[in-house]
Structure formats: structure tokens, C-alpha cells
Simulated scan of single mutants.
Amino acid sequence: MEYDKEKADEMVLALLWLTVFEQDYVTRAWKGHSWEHLDRLHEKGFISDPKNKNKSVVLTEEGEKRSEELFNQYFGIEKPD
């Protein structure tokens, strides 16, 4: 199946926000997503290398900010003025 990989990467990054937690002064997220997408997010500088024994990845400062922004963009509820 062909699809827009850039949009899919954005969605995966947004969904990582659902599993964010703090550990040892870094922001981590569970890595239960496609390796293909996680590898591309790593190449883009949003997360640490997903190929390790950990069940989670570290979000970079930029990755943490962008993950939250995308989550709010796709799933946030607008509050009436």
C-alpha cells in the first residue's frame, strides 16, 4: 500500500505524546510503533535511536515540542471563547 510517509510520521510523533513520561531528567515515550516510522523520526532528530533494548525512546527537545504540538493539532479540543 502506498501512503504519505511524511503524514504518517507526523501521526506517529503525535501519538508518542500519549505515552510520554519523565525518567532521569529526560522525556521518554513507549516505542510501540512501526520501526520504519521510528527510524525516520530518529533520522529527523525527534527521538533517540530506537534500536536498543529499551522499551522506550528519548524524545529530543525538538521532538518533545513537536510531538505535543502535533498531538494538540490532531486531537486537541478547542475550547469556546
Results as ranks from 00 to 15, higher is better:
residue 52 N to S: 13
residue 18 L to I: 12
residue 46 F to H: 08
residue 61 E to I: 12
residue 80 P to N: 13
residue 8 A to Y: 02
residue 45 G to N: 00
residue 81 D to R: 11
residue 45 G to R: 01
residue 22 E to P: 13
residue 53 K to L: 13
residue 18 L to F: 06
residue 78 E to Y: 13
residue 1 M to R: 12
residue 23 Q to M: 11
residue 46 F to I: 04
residue 28 R to T: 11
residue 18 L to V: 09
residue 27 T to Y: 15
residue 79 K to M: 09
residue 10 E to C: 09
residue 4 D to F: 03
residue 73 Q to L: 11
residue 56 S to L: 06
residue 52 N to W: 07
residue 44 K to S: 03
residue 33 H to K: 02
residue 38 L to Y: 03
residue 25 Y to F: 14
residue 13 L to G: 07
residue 11 M to G: 05
residue 27 T to A: 10
residue 72 N to F: 10
residue 33 H to E: 09
residue 2 E to D: 15
residue 58 V to R: 14
residue 44 K to A: 00
residue 19 T to P: 12
residue 70 L to T: 01
residue 45 G to F: 00
residue 64 E to Q: 13
residue 23 Q to T: 13
residue 68 E to P: 13
residue 28 R to S: 03
residue 80 P to S: 11
residue 71 F to I: 10
residue 50 P to S: 03
residue 67 S to R: 02
residue 13 L to E: 08
residue 56 S to V: 06
residue 14 A to M: 00
residue 10 E to V: 09
residue 42 H to R: 01
residue 56 S to H: 11
residue 19 T to F: 01
residue 26 V to C: 12
residue 32 G to P: 13
residue 57 V to N: 02
residue 66 R to W: 08
residue 36 E to C: 04
residue 55 K to V: 14
residue 8 A to I: 12
residue 23 Q to C: 15
residue 53 K to M: 15
residue 65 K to Q: 11
residue 43 E to T: 14
residue 4 D to A: 09
residue 1 M to V: 06
residue 11 M to Q: 09
residue 35 W to V: 11
residue 47 I to A: 01
residue 25 Y to G: 10
residue 51 K to M: 08
residue 65 K to M: 07
residue 39 D to L: 12
residue 79 K to Q: 05
residue 76 G to P: 04
residue 31 K to V: 05
residue 59 L to N: 06
residue 43 E to F: 13
residue 13 L to V: 04
residue 51 K to V: 12
residue 41 L to S: 04
residue 57 V to R: 01
residue 53 K to V: 14
residue 62 E to D: 15
